[in-house]
């Protein structure tokens, strides 16, 4: 892998964000809307229940913020690819000396940068608006963010692969795919509260362990370490599978001659 190539591709996406401020608005606007809705619901519940439960429901805000971290990482990968499609630049990139791994790495970095922006904005608003300090999660935040980012990257690669296969008609998948998983990964409720048949499914996904862990940390200040290791192990598996799917579909589009139609449409 050539670091200069990766930095050039990242530079291209950063230029895009500086040239089109509306993209920065998008990066901040929806997370803030989510935060305000969930923040107000939390305040409503706090005022109408006993103080102990009122304190407990802060996990809604924690869940919402961590979910957004994962979503932004996925978007960093999928939307970066779509930016090249929308601007008819994909062909230029594919006929330049850019390895697939370099291209994907650049989108990962963009995903990471999106996370940083979103995390800072949400942390500040939740602290000042709802007295929810995300840093009460302490050092746990780092493995939480890292694991959710890894799963976001995997979903980003899967979204991109499906768009590559089915063209721009499938571009809504870039936004929809994370939400296929949202009910299953126990963002706002415990796994034990899910229907019995769905609980084994929930434990198949890395974010489930993170959201369960977050609730444990908020409740007791610590969590089961095995959750973190299981999440990390599953993430490696999903990254490998998503990477394989992406490469397989990229090769398939080359074999079928779909790439050029897609790149110039």
């Amino acid at each position: 892998m050539n670091l200069q190539t990766i930095s050039a591709l990242v530079l291209r996406y950063l230029f895009l964000y500086t040239r089109t401020p509306m993209r920065m608005v998008e990066l901040v606007f929806w997370p803030v809307v989510d935060l305000v809705v969930w923040g107000n619901v939390t305040v409503f519940i706090q005022k109408n229940t006993n103080p102990e439960f009122g304190n407990f429901v802060l996990f809604f805000l924690g869940g919402m913020i961590l979910w957004d971290i994962m979503f932004r990482a996925q978007q960093g990968v999928a939307i970066s690819f779509l930016e090249d499609v929308w601007t008819r630049n994909l062909l230029n990139v594919f006929v330049a000396p850019v390895r697939t791994t370099e291209y994907v790495s650049a989108t990962f970095i963009v995903g990471f940068l999106r996370i940083v922006v979103t995390a800072i904005v949400l942390s500040l608003i939740s602290w000042f608006g709802y007295t929810f300090n995300v840093f009460t999660l302490s050092w746990w935040l780092i493995p939480f963010f890292a694991n959710l980012m890894l799963f976001g990257w995997s979903l980003g690669m899967i979204s991109t692969a499906l768009i590559l296969r089915w063209g721009q008609a499938a571009e809504s998948l870039a936004w929809a795919i994370p939400f296929f998983f949202q009910p299953a990964v126990a963002v706002f409720y415990r796994v034990e509260d899910m229907p019995a048949w769905s609980q084994p499914i929930a434990w198949c996904f890395p974010p489930t362990y993170i959201f369960e862990g977050m609730r444990d940390v908020m409740k007791s200040g610590s969590m089961n370490w095995s959750y973190l290791w299981t999440s990390a192990g599953l993430n490696l598996l999903y990254l490998a599978l998503a990477g394989w799917l992406f490469l397989w579909i990229l090769n398939l589009t080359r074999k079928r001659g779909l790439l050029t139609k897609f790149a110039t449409q």
Binding site: R12, R19, D84, A263
Partner: peptide, 8 residues
């Protein structure tokens, strides 16, 4: 093909 239209 085109270079990204939204960049300088």
């Amino acid at each position: 093909t085109a270079l990204p239209g939204n960049l300088l």
